[in-house]
């Protein structure tokens, strides 16, 4: 269930730009922001929004990019003629910054991004897709843990033997 209003800042298109009906299964739709200004460009890459070349950018680089881009695109520093455009631009810039500067959100976003790249196109209900990725991740994590536990067990054999030897010595 999601509906979005056209930004009053933008042009004179109908207010309720599009309305999705209830999903029968009640699947969550990932819409961190539904300002249509952003939604229009939902397929844009947050790293590109911040003019970052690499997905491996450090938090300092992200912060620096946010400030540099802010100095160019914040409505306060842009010409009043470009107010609507710059407002849209900055809202998007901030959304990108907010996601990428938060380690948890960034990880989720990177995940979505890689799936997008993998398929070569952006899936409409990426929430569904994303949950599958998360599920796969969880499976992988479980596998990793179980193999770690196995290692622990193997190692503990040596421990056990050493412990036995110590016991013997103590006696």
């Amino acid at each position: 269930m999601n509906c979005s209003f056209a930004s009053s800042l933008s042009d004179a298109k109908p207010f309720l730009s599009h309305v999705r009906s209830h999903k029968p299964q009640g699947k969550p739709i990932l819409t961190a922001f539904s300002c249509r200004a952003c939604e229009k460009d939902q397929s844009t890459n947050f790293y590109k929004v911040l003019s970052l070349n690499s997905n491996q950018a450090s938090i300092d680089e992200i912060q620096k990019a946010y400030r540099t881009m802010g100095l160019q695109h914040h409505p306060d520093v842009c010409h009043p003629f470009k107010k609507d455009e710059s407002t849209r631009m900055f809202v998007q810039l901030h959304a990108a910054y907010k996601t990428l500067s938060d380690p948890v959100l960034r990880e989720e976003y990177d995940c979505i991004l890689s799936s997008r790249n993998f398929e070569g196109k952006f899936r409409a209900d990426f929430a569904d897709h994303y949950s599958r990725i998360r599920w796969q991740e969880q499976i992988q994590e479980l596998k990793r843990r179980s193999s770690y536990r196995m290692e622990q067990k193997e190692r503990s054999w040596g421990n056990r033997m050493r412990a036995k030897n110590n016991e013997k010595r103590d006696k």
Binding site: C3, S7, F15, L16, V19, S21, H22, H74, S86
Partner: peptide, 27 residues
Amino acid sequence: MDIDASNVLRVLAGVILPGSQQPAVPV
């Protein structure tokens, strides 16, 4: 709710009935 660059606050309210694609009353 929408706050623009000039700090102007606008409140928009719309009504949607389930199954409908259009707002039930003008926004």
